[in-house]
Simulated scan of single mutants.
Amino acid sequence: MKKFLKRTIGIALSMTLVASLAACGTKASDANADAGSQEPAAVDFSKESVTAIVPYDAGGGTDTVMRALADAAKGSFKNITVENRSGAGGATGMLAGANAAADGKTITMTTVELTTLEAMGTNAGLTYSQFKPIMMVNSAASAITVKADDTRFNTLEDVLEYSKSNGFQMGNSGNGAIWHLAAAGLAKAADTQFTHVGYDGAAGAITDLLGGHIDGVAVSYAEVANYVASGDLKVLAVLSDNRLEAIPDVPTAKESGYDVVLGTWRGLAVPAATPQEVVDELYRIFSEAAQSEDFVTFMNNSNNVIEIMDGPSYEARMAKDLETYTALIEDLGLKVQ
């Protein structure tokens, strides 16, 4: 099935509880045209070693996307190293990145949790204004996933009805993280509750699901795709406006009567005080890397959607999402007092 490189206005984050939002995307091809007329870069990164912080455990979707992007961009640096700093639902690693030297040598893969954790009140002082965004890289919807041989659950309705009388242990990537909010939003729409089990990234939750220690997960399809292909897991529904191209037989939650559309985004950022000319050079490097054949192939094969936004558009997206999730979290009663 033909895959595609997605450059859209923005992914929907709408549900009955929250108004949908949009942000303006910028095509990487436009950036290339602009780059041709730029003055020589203020920083020659070919002589610099750079660290890319991933605020989650190795093996999850954020980690694999960052590593693929770093590999595609490695020719532009003396060296680029990916460092996992997990903890506190992503806050630990993002705080480390925000507080790094503002010289462009420490890049952080920021995720939607940059806004959800602040809205929850569990961010340990983290806020998006501590960063200067470089670009948004990709987006993904939540996929409600269970073990393939679990005969209790063959439809989304099976999960929701079972949870009302028996409870349902739903794994996610940490308290206040997007997969926690996605599952909580679905539960509210269905007038039920899940027992939320948090991990420092989706990989641990998926491991425990495979081991039968929890009942299901609400993570991106890309993070479970290999286990679906191997026959170990099955996806019952996706929290998106439309069915996913990779799994066209899996319905959306909306098709079952639950208007819940929630997902993540991932992008690159540096400390807020970083000089703009340094940010511009990093944008040039990584936007070209995001168009490279190797990166596009990886993203397509791993069922990840490429969605590029330039720095200003990405920052506007963060500001809008903070408003959106603040309203959602208050409505769900999840804000930490």
Rank of each mutant, 00 (worst) to 15 (best):
A184W: 14
A184V: 13
G185N: 14
A187Q: 02
A187I: 03
K188P: 14
K188C: 10
A189N: 12
A189G: 12
A189S: 15
A190L: 07
D191R: 07
D191A: 12
D191S: 15
T192E: 13
Q193I: 08
Q193W: 06
T195G: 02
T195D: 14
T195K: 14
T195I: 11
H196M: 15
V197S: 05
G198C: 01
G198K: 09
Y199M: 08
Y199R: 13
D200F: 00
G201T: 00
G201K: 05
G201Y: 00
A202M: 07
A202I: 04
A203I: 06
A203W: 00
A203V: 05
A203Y: 03
A203H: 02
G204H: 05
G204T: 03
G204L: 01
A205N: 05
A205M: 05
A205H: 00
I206E: 00
T207V: 13
D208G: 03
D208L: 05
L209K: 06
L209Q: 01
L209Y: 00
L209S: 02
L210C: 09
L210F: 02
G211D: 10
G211W: 02
G211S: 10
G211A: 10
G212I: 04
G212Q: 07
G212T: 04
G212Y: 08
H213Y: 10
I214V: 09
I214T: 01
D215C: 11
G216H: 11
G216P: 12
V217K: 09
V217P: 02
V217Q: 06
V217E: 01
V217N: 00
A218F: 10
V219F: 09
V219N: 11
V219E: 08
V219R: 01
S220I: 04
S220W: 09
Y221F: 15
Y221E: 06
Y221H: 12
Y221S: 04
A222L: 09
E223D: 08
E223S: 15
V224A: 04
V224S: 06
A225Y: 12
A225K: 12
A225T: 02
A225I: 05
Y227T: 04
V228G: 00
V228N: 03
A229S: 10
S230P: 06
D232C: 01
K234S: 09
V235M: 07
V235T: 10
L236K: 11
A237K: 07
V238Q: 07
L239M: 11
L239N: 00
L239G: 07
L239Q: 11
S240A: 15
S240Y: 13
S240Q: 13
D241M: 10
N242A: 15
N242E: 15
N242G: 14
L244I: 14
L244G: 03
L244Q: 08
E245R: 13
E245G: 12
A246L: 13
A246Q: 14
I247T: 15
I247L: 14
